[in-house]
């Protein structure tokens, strides 16, 4: 009898659970458990951090479970390709198309193979640094050094976000001093730790870094082997202007603007300056129901309208940047087109 009772209770609970999930599915057409795979394997990096903020906001807004899995780009694209019911979506940044432009294996044209969703934030920190004792005071000094046939070694991680600034710099040298761009040499390496190490070892003159990871190094006294100096931030000036006035760490917003166009100028085409904002956006399976795309756009629109997520993002040095799917896709496609020209020009 007891067994029967508990059996009935289980059946009842299951039925009620099913009914509840059907009701909510009809409302928002979203899975009760949403998995967000990200293009990075690190849970300490900006992609995870930004995705976690957005995931939490979505979970609160929609009353669903949202889990962020740091699976890495290759596994994320593979998973996304397989699952079209909207239970798994992806968040990544410009690397997703830059990898394709640079011909890195495991990357695809996301605009053809997937559906590009809304943008949510910018990491404005992509930067280039020299040792504090370096003779080069600015990015212009670096360009001039290349023009006068000095070899400048730049530590980057090849095939994406870390390389695009290098490519732009090479392109700028080519435009201003044709033939001298060969003096800018890439030293391919991996993590930020490896890039820093190359600077400490004197194996690189310039490294790609970020405001978040390298700002404290810029506060060290010049005699410290680890001391560095920013010479260029690739972000748009209007992006930096949206950071808090106190900037990041001990570097104020005003000081950060010294390293951004127009003060730090790297020409893109002889007229306008090259800029690069690392933007985070959603990517969906191509066959995913457009109603889900709309539902997520709507939910995010409401989240951003409420204004709370912006505070959380800014606290972590992200610039809120919500654009609904259609607008975001068009914008990012144009952005990709511009970078394609740069990459092609220095091939």
């Amino acid at each position: 009898m007891k067994f029967l009772k508990s059996g009935l209770a289980v059946a009842m609970a299951a039925f009620m659970g099913l009914a509840a999930s059907q009701a909510s599915a009809a409302d928002v057409e979203l899975a009760k458990n949403l998995r967000i795979v990200i293009g990075s394997k690190s849970t300490g990096g900006d992609t995870y951090q930004n995705s976690a903020i957005v995931a939490q906001a979505l979970a609160d807004k929609l009353g669903i479970n949202v889990k962020v899995d740091a699976v890495g780009s290759s596994a994320a694209f593979k998973t996304l390709r397989r699952i079209s019911n909207g239970s798994t979506i992806m968040i990544f940044h410009d690397q997703s198309y830059l990898g394709y432009l640079y011909g890195v294996k495991g990357y695809f044209n996301i605009f053809e193979d997937f559906t590009v969703g809304p943008t949510v934030a910018i990491n404005p920190g992509n930067s280039y640094l020299v040792p504090k004792s370096s003779p080069y005071q600015s990015i212009e000094d670096i360009i001039q050094a290349c023009a006068s046939d000095k070899k400048i070694r730049v530590a980057i991680q090849p095939g994406g976000v870390s390389e695009i600034g290098f490519s732009a710099l090479k392109n700028a040298i080519k435009l201003r001093y044709p033939g001298k761009e060969a003096n800018l040499v890439a030293v391919n390496t991996g993590s930020q730790s490896d890039k820093n190490q190359l600077l400490f070892d004197g194996q690189a003159d310039l490294i790609n870094g970020s405001v978040q990871a390298n700002e404290q190094y810029t506060q060290l006294p010049a005699e410290d082997q680890k001391a560095m100096r920013f010479v260029w931030l690739t972000a748009r000036p209007e992006t930096i202007k949206q950071t808090k006035p106190e900037g990041f760490g001990d570097t104020s917003q005003e000081h950060l603007l010294d390293f951004v166009s127009p003060k730090a100028s790297v020409t893109q085409d002889g007229e306008k300056d090259f800029t690069f904002d690392k933007e985070f956006f959603f990517i969906y399976n191509k066959k995913m129901d457009p109603a889900i795309v709309d539902a997520l756009d709507e939910a995010l629109g409401e989240i951003y309208a409420e204004g709370k997520i912006q505070e959380t993002q800014k606290k972590s040095f992200f610039i809120p940047n919500f654009k609904p799917s259609a607008e975001a896709a068009a914008y990012l496609k144009d952005k990709m087109g511009q970078y394609e020209v740069i990459i092609d020009s220095i091939k």
């Binding site: 495991g106 090849p158 390496t189 991996g190």
Partner: peptide
């Protein structure tokens, strides 16, 4: 792996 600075 390019994340180690390789050629992918």
């Amino acid at each position: 792996d390019i994340s180690y600075g390789g050629n992918g």
